[in-house]
Structures are given as structure tokens and as C-alpha cells.
Design a protein around this nucleic acid. Sequence first.
DNA 1: GCGAGATCGTTGCAAATGCAACTAATTACC
DNA 2: GGTAATTAGTTGCATTTGCAACGATCTCGC
Lengths: 160, 160
Amino acid sequence: MFDLASYLPYLVNRVGVRLANAFGKELAAFGVTLPMWRVMAALRDRRSSSVGRLSEATSIEVSTLSRLLAAMDRRGLVRRQRASADARSVIVELSEAGKHLTQRIIPKALRYQEIALRDFDGADATALKAMLVRVHENIAALEEEAPEGVERARAGASGR
Amino acid sequence: MFDLASYLPYLVNRVGVRLANAFGKELAAFGVTLPMWRVMAALRDRRSSSVGRLSEATSIEVSTLSRLLAAMDRRGLVRRQRASADARSVIVELSEAGKHLTQRIIPKALRYQEIALRDFDGADATALKAMLVRVHENIAALEEEAPEGVERARAGASGR
DNA sequence: GCGAGATCGTTGCAAATGCAACTAATTACC
DNA sequence: GGTAATTAGTTGCATTTGCAACGATCTCGC
């Protein structure tokens, strides 16, 4: 039996799309898109990052992110510079303007989260988030197990 | 304070993207894309549907869905016919081939869900899903409240 | 220290997406 | 009953996306 209404990927996708669409509209007032906000939030969280790590942090594919960062650079939201240690990588960080805009958006983002969790008490909200983290880890583990290649015959003890 | 690691939209998006990417790759073996699978699962769930309702069920934007359905029709996965009652709407349903393929994919989908929930007991899994439904409803309520227009002064009793 | 292979990011190109405009059909109002 | 306003779905068009190919740099083995 397969019941869509209790199928996790369906439920997650549904919530994700709604959350994205609704908040995306609010973001328009700030002149940024949702992907841009994601980048800003991730950069605020880690001060600076290479493009690759930022891609993981935001779940935005590297080539898409590369172009997005170029656009954000043009708009003066971020700065990019090649790493001195490894000249292949590019270090990205928020500009001053980017930081200020991020701070202005944060209250909206938090208010938005409150609405999404309006009937949750603190314990439930925490439980929900913890479970989402666990699900994320479970899938991540799967991906590492099957590096998509052919090699890996014997189930190696490849604990993360 | 704003902590990305405990920000719900971030956590949901992360899980959603991973789930989508990973399962999308499995779907390639069946010759369908993830959006196609979503449509198939939704149609299996409701036997038949208009394009508009299917759009709500799948969280796929109507114009995107229209084109997707055309492609699926060409591939023989779905049938489309104008409704006799209301000749504006189009009734979509799975073809026999579409039904069979859906049945073949379902086991994979369920196995995939098991992996995502590998360390959850039944109660936790149920709780997680129930909370996702609640979050979804909370955001849906928000959207109805603010139909984006200017008109709506008096809070009309506009029960869905 | 040199060359093969891996890694990082960007870009070409085709496909997917979303909004707005459009056509067709229905409903509401007088 | 006829016309204006609404609704359903499709299509035009510009933007976004993702994969593959690429150039540049680094790492490893010798």
C-alpha cells in the first residue's frame, strides 16, 4: 500500500514549496530573490566560505551558485576573492551592505517561522527540527554509501 | 538572534532538496523525471483530476504542469480529455501504462522513505508527518488571509 | 622537480520554470 | 437572453537551472 498523504517526501516537498513561495514574495520588497537570501543567511552564519562549501550549505548547485554570486557581487551584496592558500577556490563573504540587508530581513524571516509554527509549543518545535536534522543525516549517509560510481562492491565500513 | 541551524525553512529546504536529488536519480532508471513521478503519485491517489487541482496536489505551477502533462501524454503515461460538464477544464488520468509504471515505482519510493526514516520508530515517524501537515496548514492559512490584493478590508467568512 | 590525475570554479548549451498575455468557456447581473 | 466579469488551461518570452566541458591550480608518486 502506498498512501500519498503519509508519504514523507511528498509532505516535505509540499511544505518546502509553500514556504519558499510565500517568503519569496516578502523578499521582493527587499529587492532580493529567495536563493539570494539563502546565500546571505548562510554567509552570515559562517562569515566566509568557498563556493563549494557554500553550495553544500545552501543546497544550491555549484554552477547555479556561481552565477548567482556573480549577480550578487554586481549588486554589491557580496565580495569574492581568490583564496591565497589555494588559488583554485574563491572566498565569498557578505559586503557591509549585504550584512545590513541581511539584518533587516532576519526579523521577517523569524516572524515567518513563527507563523509556520503558530500552534507549536517550544518542545514540539524543537522536536520537529531535530527530526528534520536526523532525516537529513540519514539521506546524506545514503549518498556517501553509494558514490554513484560502480566501485564499492563489498559494503565497506565507510562510516561517514 | 538568528540561528540558521534551527531555522525551519532552512531545515525543510535542505531535506527537500536532498530527497529530491537522490530519488530523482533512482527514477532515471524508469525513464521518468521527479516531477513526472509526483504527477503519477497524485493521479494514482485521486484517480482523475483537473489540471488546476493537480497543480495544488503536486505543488507544481499550472503552466509548468500543463507542459509536463503534454510530455507525459506524448509518452503515453496519462490521458487528457476536456470535461463534459465544464469544457474549460481538462480531466487528467493515468493510462494503463502509467498505472503499471506507478506500481513499479512505489516499492522504490517506500524503500526510500524507510531509509530517510531509518532510525525512527513508528510513533516518531507519525509525529513528524503530522507536524509537517500542521505546518503546511499554517502557511496555507496565511496565504488565504492575504490574497495579495488590496481588497479584503472586512475579514469575510471565506472558508476555503 | 615533473607529469598524471584530482579538485575548484566558470561557462556553453539545452531544458525547465514562472509570469503575463491570450483563447475558450462559464457564470453573474441586469 | 445578452453582455461583463471570472475561471481553466495553454503559450510566448525571458530567466533560471543543471549537466558536461573547460581552464586553472593543486596533489601525489616517482
